[in-house]
Amino acid sequence: MYAIPFHHLVVGLVTGTSTLACISSIVAWLSTYFSNGDRVRIYFDNAAYVSAIAAIPLMPIAVISGTLSMGNPGGDAMSYNKFLFTGLTTGFLLSLIVGRWRFGPNVWLDKRLGVLQGLCAIGALICVTILGSIGGKMSLGKSTMDLIPFWPQFNQSIVLNQWFSLFMFLLGIFAITITFRLGPEINQLSSSDD
């Protein structure tokens, strides 16, 4: 009974925090191209870091409340795509947080890492926009993407075999473990590392 309003509430929070994280990250990255952008970079870096961390625990709550508020979750292409884009958004946001956590606030000052963080933010922003658009299309029949002259085919989806998805999931866990346990040592960047 309360699943739908609760889902709307959580979706509002998760979309807001994710969008704030992405836009703040992009601004922090772009500020490095301006000679007097240090102060802006520090503000937006903090905003991005905090809002990205806030968005992560809200993601599974949004998925669970969405699953409870739908008749046949995952049973049609639109709701299936919601799961896929939630996964992609979470992946990009987690990458953003990990990068910021491991390299510190000066991650934006390094040319290569700054670009990588910026691309993660752009990827997450695109995925969040698509996610919100699919939700809007399902509940209201309208979406943000109606503004563009074509509607991407979200009523079709790439469905992998369930066992292949399980294999991919296990492969992902293995890859993450190898990366963190056996990967090179990471040190926080100082301002002279740029």
Binding site: G91, V98, G99, V159, N161, S165, L166, M168, I176, T179
Partner: peptide, 28 residues
């Protein structure tokens, strides 16, 4: 449509981990 709820969950989680693994490796 031949998708299932568990298939969607598994595929979503797999894409999260794969994206994270690729980007963390790129960072390194």
């Amino acid at each position: 449509f031949d998708g299932t709820l568990w298939g969607a969950r598994m595929q979503g989680l797999a894409s999260t981990l794969i994206i994270l693994a690729i980007i963390v490796n790129l960072q390194a």
